[in-house]
């Protein structure tokens, strides 16, 4: 037995599959002509592949790139899952996508609704919480609430928020997870169907929600943010990694969070240059020169910090300069979390 024999024998399967580069393909016939055992094996493997091929001439294969059938394939797909709500304005697009993303993830939750997710919520309760959380904007935009009202008179927004979540979760535990998902999904669709979701001019109106007076368009971005963060929570609980929102939507959320953070920091805090990886940089705090510190964060990590999913101490970051000034920014960012 020669080295050539061993080499060729090892190549025979790839050769039979037609998967040899030309230089190696040329080595096969001369060896088969003089080696009976390889010739027999080659014949057997070739015959196996021939049977896998079938009578190739019978196959009505089409030429060129297959673009035909696109419409039927897409329409079959669409009947299995609707695309993210089209025709919404840019400010509502992140929420439309986040809703679609959570629906897709919940298809994986079947049989695992009781998996603990975050706080003392399981998957079912987390969806119920989103039903409650989205409801505040829904009611503000004139939609009806889908769960009997709560008695929240006199409570501040945080207490009212928590109470509403508790009531809705209790209510939803009285029915199956699929019904909760349907209620959440229908409310989300209704929100995306409001004139404010489609018309930036209407969405420019400032309203107070969750203690923050912001344009309706920003509240839509906040809904996207909360939906994504909880989708990510559920994904971690189920062991299914959730990709971050599409780039453009991610940045809408980053920019809004930076604005809210800047407002919370106020005009006298020691100035910190915040660089969010991938493009944007801002000076937070006072306009005094020079900045006291520089802080660099990945956009997803920044969102997870603001969403309370990273602690200020552990969030991956680059920093230089005054550590107290940096800590001040990080701690304030984390304190914005209400999720």
């Amino acid at each position: 037995m020669t080295a050539e024999h061993d080499d060729v024998r090892d190549l025979l399967a790839a050769w039979a599959f037609g998967a040899l580069p030309p230089d190696e393909r040329r080595r096969i016939p001369p060896h088969l002509a003089e080696c009976e055992s390889c010739a027999a094996e080659a014949e057997e493997l070739r015959e196996t592949v021939r049977l896998l091929d079938g009578a190739a001439s019978d196959l009505p294969e089409r030429n060129g790139g297959v673009t035909h059938g696109t419409a039927s394939v897409l329409s079959a797909a669409r009947s299995a899952r609707r695309p993210a709500a089209p025709h919404v304005a840019a400010h509502a697009a992140p929420y439309a996508a986040a809703v679609s993303g959570l629906s897709a993830l919940l298809a994986e939750a079947e049989g695992r609704w009781g998996t603990p997710v975050v706080h003392d919520w399981d998957v079912h309760a987390t969806v119920a919480h989103l039903l409650a959380a989205d409801e505040h904007l829904a009611v503000l935009l004139g939609l009806d609430s889908r769960v009997p009202a709560s008695r929240t008179d006199g409570a501040d927004w945080e207490a009212a928020w928590d109470l509403r979540t508790a009531d809705v979760i209790a209510h939803e535990y009285g029915r199956g997870p699929q019904e909760t998902v349907a209620a959440w999904s229908a409310q989300a669709e209704a929100l995306l169907g409001t004139p404010e979701a489609r018309d930036p001019a209407l969405a420019a109106r400032a309203v107070t929600l969750m203690g923050a007076r912001l344009p309706v368009s920003d509240h839509f971005v906040v809904r996207a943010f909360e939906t994504w963060i909880h989708t990510d929570d559920i994904g971690r609980a189920l062991g299914v990694p959730v990709p971050p929102p599409p780039e453009e939507h991610l940045w809408q959320q980053v920019r809004l969070a930076v604005r809210i953070l800047g407002a919370a920091l106020g005009p006298t805090a020691p100035p910190v240059l915040l660089a969010v990886t991938g493009g944007d940089e801002w000076v937070l705090g006072s306009e005094d020169e020079p900045v006291r510190a520089e802080l660099a964060l990945d956009p997803v990590d920044f969102c997870l910090l603001v969403g309370g999913r990273h602690s200020p101490r552990e969030v991956p970051r680059g920093e230089s300069g005054d550590t107290d000034a940096v800590r001040n920014v990080l701690e304030l960012a984390a304190s914005l979390a209400w999720l």
Binding site: P244, E247, E248, W251, L261, P267, G279, V283, L284, E287
Partner: peptide, 17 residues
């Protein structure tokens, strides 16, 4: 207080492709 330092230029395409 927020002062943008740079114009948005989102370049991280690697995760989008």
């Amino acid at each position: 207080m927020v002062t943008p330092v740079t114009e948005p230029a989102h370049g991280t395409e690697k995760s989008s492709s």
